[in-house]
Design a protein around this nucleic acid. Structure first.
Length: 237
DNA sequence: CCCCAGGCCGCGC
DNA sequence: GCGCGGCATGGG
């Protein structure tokens, strides 16, 4: 990863895909300032309201190893059932909660995780801001979920080194140069300016790019990062 | 039929 | 500290 320059990559992705407006708020889709899938038209505020924070945290847990489409179904079920706050979630029977989030997969496990996690992150006064280590100590919060909360809920510059990010970087620099989650995170964080909007937009662009081109089975034709990519060389261009 | 998706945990080594 | 199985649905 020694000669990887993330800002170059960012320029290419931004030019190809434009602004992304993450994190999508499913409950706000179609409202003023949001599109039909809940993506913001403009940049998001540094710190979210308790309602928005609740929804991002729920979504971050539900999307663990799960397609966002399935998460949208589960979020719809939750909001239709009136579960839109820490209090309403904690007042729900775990088996019922599991049934509501069934479309997101691992539904029994995720029901338990939500019930475990939410009291740590919210008090009767509102959002509780925890450190990365404190987040990681909670059952059900691993590195990616912690960094998602830090970046999109608390507005802190932690780079999310999720599946799309690590797969993209592996193809850019080659498998031999690849690192683990923390090394990839450090790679980006040590080479980027401390710019919250940049961090948020960059991760969103990587996910978008992962869905359109750099998926498990890559579609390299038309890839906006091909000129930076070791893998693309010799492939279907 | 198969593989894949914005992980995480507990276990064995 | 790293690899592996379990957890589960819905789309391609």
């Amino acid at each position: 990863m020694a000669d990887f320059f993330p800002e170059q990559l960012y320029i290419f992705l931004q030019e190809a895909y434009g602004p992304q407006g993450w994190w999508p708020l499913h409950s706000r889709r179609g409202e003023a300032g949001f599109d039909q899938r809940g993506y913001r038209n403009g940049p998001s505020p540094a710190t979210l309201s308790p309602d928005e924070a609740f929804e991002v945290i729920i979504g971050a847990v539900l999307t663990q190893n799960t397609n966002w489409r399935n998460v949208e179904k589960a979020l719809s079920e939750l909001f239709t059932a009136g579960i839109n706050s820490p209090e309403s979630l904690l007042a729900t029977n775990p088996d019922l909660l599991a049934d509501l989030i069934r479309p997101s997969g691992y539904f029994r496990q995720k029901s338990g995780r939500l019930i475990t996690i939410i009291p740590h992150l919210f008090s009767p006064h509102g959002l509780t801001e925890l450190s990365r280590d404190e987040l990681l100590a909670i059952q059900g919060i691993g590195p990616e979920t912690a960094d998602t909360i830090l970046l999109y809920v608390y507005g802190r510059c932690f780079f999310i080194a999720d599946l799309y990010t690590r797969r993209l970087l592996m193809r850019l620099v080659g498998a031999d140069e690849m690192g683990n989650y923390e090394e990839v995170r450090d790679c980006f964080e040590s080479r980027l300016p401390n710019d919250l909007a940049l961090y948020r937009e960059f991760h969103a662009l990587i996910v978008r790019h992962g869905k359109e081109h750099c998926s498990a089975r890559p579609r390299c034709a038309g890839c906006p990062a091909a000129t930076l990519c070791a893998y693309a060389t010799g492939h279907d261009a």
